[in-house]
């Protein structure tokens, strides 16, 4: 297979990877915040449920979680799986896994904000939503950015795990071509794709970090 053709085929896989990547971030970033709220809730049941959820998500392999999400409905409940469920299962698996990690990052960020910020806001008459959205969250975002960058760089590499339920993202494509051609080249090209993508992600995140460095704490 010629290099342009290889790049074209891997590029197609990369698009699927990017799709998984984007959808995962789109849903897991806000979901993580909700999980973080649950994890910090005064309600002991909710708090412990969230704690257990985070513990399971962090304590078991993502690959296993993907398989459970994909095969679970059929093997546990006998629900027949439509074709499109394969991709949906990947998204669900990634979202619930990453939301757990993001939740802990948010929690760390939120708990690091001095209580004086809440007290000052309360004395000035801000309600709870205003306090969180205007005073707390902007400071949290600045503080957690390096940790979030770590996660979202790991995420693009993790998309390769979708191959376990045969979603044709880039890694799956690379593997197929490599075994058909008995060649290392597809893996090397795939590696370059991942690297370039993450280089861009890191660059963008660094830019945002710089943008937010207008104040120090």
């Amino acid at each position: 297979m010629s290099l342009p053709m290889l790049i074209q085929r891997l590029g197609g896989g990369m698009l699927v990877s990017i799709e998984i990547y984007t959808l995962t971030l789109l849903f897991s970033l806000p979901l993580g915040l909700l999980v973080a709220f649950g994890r910090m809730s005064k309600n002991i049941i909710l708090r412990n449920v969230m704690k257990l959820y985070i513990s399971i998500m962090r304590g078991t392999p993502l690959m296993l979680q993907l398989m459970v999400v994909y095969f679970g409905p059929y093997f546990l409940f006998g629900i027949p799986l439509p074709r499109y469920y394969r991709f949906l299962a990947v998204i669900i698996g990634f979202v619930i896994n990453y939301a757990a990690y993001f939740a802990e990052i948010y929690r760390g960020g939120i708990e690091s904000i001095p209580v004086g910020q809440y007290e000052a806001a309360k004395l000035l008459g801000y309600n709870k939503t205003q306090t969180f959205m205007r005073i707390i969250l902007p400071q949290v975002i600045k503080r957690i950015l390096p940790a979030v960058t770590n996660e979202i760089i790991t995420l693009i590499k993790d998309t390769s795990l979708a191959f376990v339920i045969s979603v044709a993202e880039m890694f799956t494509a690379a593997q197929e071509i490599a075994s058909a051609q008995a060649s290392m080249i597809p893996f090397i090209v795939a590696g370059i794709f991942y690297y370039v993508f993450n280089y861009i992600v890191a660059f963008v995140m660094e830019y945002i970090e710089k943008k937010l460095s207008y104040y120090k704490v």
Binding site: P114, G116, Q117, E119, A120, L123, L124, G125, Y126, Q130, R134, I135, P138, Q139, K142, Y215, K216, V217
Partner: peptide
């Protein structure tokens, strides 16, 4: 109103915004 020992200004707001934000938001 209360003035705190350690100020508790909002670090991500300018001096002016620290003073005006509650007027606008609240």
């Amino acid at each position: 109103g209360l003035v705190f020992q350690n100020f508790n200004l909002f670090p991500h707001f300018t001096a002016l915004k620290n003073v005006t934000d509650a007027l606008i938001t609240v």
